[in-house]
Every structure is written in structure tokens, then in C-alpha cells.
Amino acid sequence: MDAIRAHDLALADRFRAGLATLGHTPVPAPGSPIVSVPGLDGLQAELARAGIAVSARAGNLRASFHLYNTAADVDRLLDVLSR
């Protein structure tokens, strides 16, 4: 279980770091594999068309990372957000 949690958190941290380089500030949630980004909820449909599963909640784009996700998934999400 600890290894899975470490994997999930590493992916969330990678996403948070990438968001910072794009000029976005996620809602603070240290220690969580869930990352919410204010103001990007309108991109959920575009991301879904690109095959990326995220949700839009309360004005935030919400990404949640787990065992089946990889660093490549995070990089792809960041790539689409950078367009």
C-alpha cells in the first residue's frame, strides 16, 4: 500500500510542478493524489476528446492519479493543457 501511495503522490506532484511551469496554481492539497486547478474546468470536454479522463467540479479541473497512471499520462495531460 505504501508503494502505491508513493506512486500516486509522485504523479500528482509531477502534475503540480508542470502546472506551475504553465502558470497555473492548483488548489493546495499536499499529500493528496487529487489535483484541482481553478478556472480550467472549461477544458474538460477538450481533454475528454483527447482521451484524457478528468472531471470539472465547482469551477475546477480535477485530476486524480492512481496505480494505473504513468508519468507519460501526466506529461500528455500537461501537453494538452499547454496548447
Rank of each mutant, 00 (worst) to 15 (best):
M1S: 09
M1Q: 03
I4H: 06
I4N: 08
I4Q: 12
I4K: 10
R5E: 15
R5D: 14
R5A: 15
A6G: 07
A6W: 04
A6P: 04
H7K: 11
D8Y: 02
L9W: 07
L9V: 06
L9I: 05
L9C: 09
L9D: 07
L9F: 07
A10T: 03
L11S: 06
L11N: 06
D13T: 00
D13A: 02
F15D: 11
A17V: 00
A17G: 03
A17I: 01
A17C: 01
G18M: 04
L19M: 11
A20C: 10
T21Y: 03
L22S: 09
G23H: 09
H24C: 05
T25F: 14
P28I: 13
G31M: 15
G31D: 15
G31S: 15
S32F: 13
S32N: 13
P33Q: 10
I34W: 08
V35P: 11
S36Q: 10
S36L: 04
V37R: 00
G39C: 08
L40A: 05
L40V: 07
L43E: 05
Q44F: 00
E46A: 14
E46I: 09
L47E: 04
A48T: 14
A48P: 12
R49W: 02
R49S: 14
A50E: 09
G51W: 05
G51N: 14
I52R: 01
I52G: 12
V54E: 12
G59A: 15
N60K: 04
N60M: 06
A63S: 15
A63I: 04
A63K: 05
H66C: 11
L67V: 04
A72D: 13
D73G: 14
D73C: 15
V74F: 04
V74L: 08
D75A: 05
D75W: 00
D75V: 02
D79M: 08
D79C: 07
D79Q: 05
R83I: 12
